[in-house]
Amino acid sequence: MEVKRLKVTELRSELQRRGLDSRGLKVDLAQRLQEALDAE
């Protein structure tokens, strides 16, 4: 999954699906999701 290409709504949805905080700026959301994906 290319996290950088996702829209903010898509980032928030993916973070919520993983039980992670979905608040913040797009750059923060993308970093949080990328870290979660790397840990999987």
Rank of each mutant, 00 (worst) to 15 (best):
M1F: 09
M1R: 07
M1K: 10
M1A: 03
M1I: 14
M1V: 06
M1Y: 01
M1E: 11
E2K: 04
E2Q: 08
E2M: 11
E2A: 06
E2W: 07
E2H: 08
E2F: 06
E2S: 07
E2P: 00
V3E: 06
V3Q: 06
V3G: 06
V3I: 14
V3H: 02
V3D: 08
V3P: 11
K4Y: 10
K4D: 11
K4P: 05
K4L: 10
K4V: 06
K4T: 13
K4I: 06
K4F: 09
K4S: 14
K4E: 14
K4C: 09
K4M: 14
R5L: 12
R5C: 10
R5A: 13
R5F: 06
R5D: 15
R5Y: 07
R5S: 13
L6M: 15
L6S: 03
L6H: 03
L6F: 11
L6V: 04
L6E: 07
L6Q: 08
L6N: 07
K7G: 13
K7T: 15
K7Q: 14
K7L: 10
K7W: 00
K7S: 15
V8F: 06
V8C: 09
V8M: 12
V8H: 05
V8N: 07
V8W: 03
V8Q: 09
V8S: 09
V8G: 05
T9P: 10
T9H: 15
T9I: 14
T9Q: 13
T9V: 09
T9G: 12
T9R: 12
E10Q: 12
E10W: 02
E10C: 03
E10S: 03
L11P: 02
L11S: 03
L11R: 01
L11T: 03
L11Q: 03
L11H: 00
R12P: 01
R12S: 06
R12M: 10
R12Y: 03
R12C: 06
R12F: 02
R12A: 08
R12E: 09
S13Q: 15
S13E: 15
S13C: 08
S13M: 11
S13A: 15
S13V: 12
S13N: 13
S13T: 13
E14S: 02
E14H: 03
E14C: 03
E14W: 00
E14R: 01
E14F: 01
E14I: 02
E14G: 01
E14T: 00
L15D: 05
L15Q: 04
L15P: 06
L15W: 00
L15A: 03
L15V: 02
L15F: 02
L15R: 00
Q16T: 12
Q16N: 11
Q16C: 06
Q16D: 11
Q16H: 09
Q16S: 12
Q16I: 15
Q16W: 02
Q16V: 11
Q16E: 14
R17E: 10
R17Y: 03
R17Q: 13
R17S: 11
R17W: 02
R17G: 07
R17C: 06
R17H: 07
R17I: 09
R17K: 14
R17L: 10
R17P: 04
R17F: 00
R17T: 09
R18S: 02
R18C: 01
R18P: 03
R18K: 05
R18F: 01
R18W: 00
R18G: 03
R18M: 08
R18Y: 01
G19E: 04
G19S: 07
G19D: 13
G19A: 05
G19T: 02
G19P: 02
G19Y: 00
L20H: 02
L20M: 12
L20R: 02
L20E: 04
L20V: 05
L20K: 04
L20A: 05
L20F: 05
L20T: 02
L20P: 01
L20G: 03
L20Q: 05
L20N: 01
D21H: 04
D21W: 01
D21F: 02
D21T: 08
D21L: 02
D21V: 02
D21A: 04
D21Y: 08
D21R: 01
D21M: 03
D21K: 04
S22C: 11
S22A: 14
S22F: 15
S22D: 15
S22W: 12
S22R: 04
S22K: 06
S22E: 12
R23Y: 13
R23A: 15
R23T: 15
R23L: 11
R23E: 15
R23S: 15
R23K: 14
R23M: 08
R23F: 10
G24Y: 00
G24A: 00
G24L: 00
G24V: 00
G24R: 00
G24P: 02
G24D: 01
G24Q: 02
G24M: 00
G24E: 01
L25R: 14
L25G: 14
L25Y: 12
L25W: 07
L25D: 15
L25K: 15
L25P: 15
L25T: 15
L25A: 15
L25H: 14
K26R: 11
K26P: 13
K26H: 13
K26N: 11
K26M: 12
K26F: 05
K26D: 12
K26E: 14
K26S: 09
K26A: 11
V27N: 14
V27K: 14
V27W: 05
V27R: 14
V27L: 11
V27F: 10
V27M: 13
D28Y: 01
D28S: 04
D28G: 03
D28L: 03
D28A: 11
D28H: 08
D28P: 01
D28F: 00
D28N: 07
D28R: 05
L29D: 10
L29R: 05
L29S: 08
L29K: 06
L29I: 08
L29A: 08
L29Y: 03
L29V: 05
L29M: 14
L29F: 02
L29E: 09
A30R: 13
A30E: 13
A30W: 07
A30P: 01
A30S: 09
A30G: 05
A30F: 08
A30T: 11
Q31N: 15
Q31D: 08
Q31H: 04
Q31K: 15
Q31T: 14
Q31G: 11
Q31V: 13
Q31I: 13
Q31M: 12
Q31S: 14
R32C: 03
R32N: 04
R32F: 00
R32I: 00
R32M: 02
R32T: 04
R32P: 04
R32V: 01
R32Y: 08
R32D: 11
L33H: 03
L33S: 07
L33A: 07
L33E: 11
L33T: 05
L33V: 04
L33R: 05
L33G: 08
L33Y: 07
L33I: 00
L33K: 09
Q34K: 09
Q34V: 04
Q34M: 06
Q34I: 04
Q34L: 04
Q34R: 06
Q34D: 07
Q34E: 10
Q34S: 09
Q34T: 10
Q34G: 08
Q34N: 10
E35L: 09
E35V: 12
E35H: 11
E35W: 04
E35F: 08
E35N: 12
E35I: 09
A36R: 08
A36Y: 08
A36L: 02
A36V: 10
A36I: 06
A36M: 04
L37G: 06
L37S: 05
L37D: 07
L37W: 07
L37C: 07
L37H: 12
L37I: 15
L37A: 05
L37R: 08
L37M: 13
L37Q: 10
L37F: 10
L37V: 11
D38K: 09
D38G: 06
D38M: 09
D38F: 06
D38I: 01
D38T: 12
D38L: 06
D38W: 05
D38N: 15
D38H: 02
D38E: 12
D38A: 08
D38S: 08
A39C: 10
A39T: 11
A39I: 03
A39K: 12
A39L: 10
A39W: 07
A39P: 07
A39D: 09
A39F: 09
A39N: 15
E40Y: 03
E40D: 10
E40H: 02
E40L: 00
E40M: 01
E40W: 00
E40A: 07
E40N: 07
